[in-house]
Simulated scan of single mutants.
Amino acid sequence: MTSQEIPSDIALLAGPPLLGHLFNYGLFGILSAQVYSYYNAFPTDPVSLKAFVYGLYAVEWVQVILISHDAFQVYGAGWGDLNALTSPQWLWFDIPIMSALVSATVQCFFAWRIFILSNSRILPPFIVLPQIALMQCGAGVATGVITGPALNNNALIQEKAKNALIVWLGGSAACDIIIAVSMCFLLARQRQGLASDKLISRLITLSVETGSVTASFAALDLIFCLAFKHNNLHMLPAFMLSKLYTNSLMLVFNNRTKLRQMHDEALPTPRAGHVSQRWATSSERTRSRGGGFPSQEISLSKLSRSSPGSHELGAHRAADGFEADVELRKPRITGSTQVRAWGPGVLL
């Protein structure tokens, strides 16, 4: 074997990809635990939601397999070979292309979530978010195509695909920021000085945390790409991007357990002469024939026309996780003792 001169920046060429692989494996372990928790906690979720969750998990499995192949080629079979270290292997596909597809899917889901919460088809974030998500997805795919198998040096990625990288990572960060701000605005409007405000505060905190994490890593990846063009420092956050998006999504899904507990604690204790509310548990929820949305029964006992509870009921908006973002309107008393409120199935 011919001897090769070790470059002075070998640590910045070999270190970031190695750490990226390790963090990717760690995040995949966390994601696997979250998917298992989802499987046990929400067996009655619609088939479409289960397919969405398990489909993203399958994509992450494929990415782990591909990056494991790349890691073995560099740090195993190609150990000591600088050509193997600088070769892109399958990174042109499993990082920009797969990460862009996963992030765009998650961002479009949150755009749908904002649309349901706002109940408006002309809300600017709902119109802009899918466009930004698809734009950054296209730029991510373009980055992968430009830096495909024909490129034999990772250090040339930033130069060859500079414009595509800016659109991909910058658009992804901008989309995450808009999602976080929109969710905070929509949820803050629901504050009414009631016990449920604690629940709304938790939802706002969760939206800020998940949006800021993904936006920060996308921005960090872009900064490293532009500032350090001749090393692999940018690969450290790049390896983590898709797993951060799927973990953020699963955190929102699984957070329903805590939200339902907080919601049940915030409900008032029924008394004679007041409205008595009974919220169905996940095992008791039934589906409507058309939309498949669950319902909650609100029993009205001894409700008089002058009861203050009837006015408060019309302004109360409860958030019971995914299946029960239910607006309880003022009931019409027609002799029946039950009113059904149908939830639109929005994931809080």
Score class of each variant (00 low, 15 high):
228 F>I: 13
218 A>T: 00
201 S>P: 03
199 L>Y: 11
138 G>T: 01
136 Q>E: 11
149 P>F: 06
127 I>G: 03
227 A>N: 09
244 L>W: 01
219 A>P: 02
149 P>Q: 04
240 M>W: 11
172 S>P: 05
224 F>V: 10
190 Q>F: 10
180 A>M: 13
149 P>C: 03
130 P>T: 03
129 L>E: 06
246 T>V: 15
174 A>P: 07
152 N>A: 07
153 N>D: 15
177 I>N: 02
176 D>P: 03
144 G>Y: 03
133 A>H: 08
138 G>C: 11
234 H>A: 07
230 H>M: 10
208 V>M: 10
157 I>H: 07
222 L>R: 10
234 H>V: 07
175 C>R: 07
187 L>R: 05
211 G>K: 09
152 N>S: 09
215 A>P: 05
157 I>S: 02
229 K>E: 09
176 D>S: 15
146 I>W: 06
194 L>D: 12
192 Q>T: 12
245 Y>I: 06
234 H>I: 05
197 D>K: 02
142 A>G: 06
185 F>L: 11
134 L>I: 12
167 V>N: 08
167 V>Q: 11
131 Q>V: 15
151 L>V: 13
189 R>K: 15
161 A>V: 08
152 N>E: 07
217 F>V: 14
154 N>F: 04
171 G>Q: 00
130 P>I: 02
200 I>T: 15
196 S>D: 07
135 M>S: 12
240 M>A: 15
221 D>N: 12
143 T>F: 06
138 G>I: 02
209 E>G: 06
140 G>F: 03
238 A>Y: 13
213 V>F: 12
139 A>N: 00
233 L>E: 05
226 L>H: 01
245 Y>E: 06
236 L>V: 00
153 N>V: 01
225 C>Y: 11
185 F>V: 15
175 C>N: 14
131 Q>H: 08
232 N>A: 09
228 F>L: 13
195 A>K: 13
158 Q>H: 06
182 S>G: 00
148 G>M: 02
210 T>H: 10
158 Q>D: 07
218 A>Q: 02
161 A>Y: 01
143 T>Q: 11
151 L>S: 04
228 F>C: 07
199 L>F: 09
197 D>N: 08
205 T>F: 12
184 C>P: 03
184 C>M: 14
164 A>W: 11
231 N>I: 05
198 K>D: 11
177 I>G: 05
188 A>G: 08
146 I>E: 05
221 D>M: 13
147 T>Y: 03
228 F>Q: 09
128 V>D: 02
230 H>P: 02
235 M>G: 01
225 C>E: 10
207 S>V: 00
172 S>Y: 07
244 L>D: 00
157 I>N: 01
168 W>F: 15
218 A>M: 04
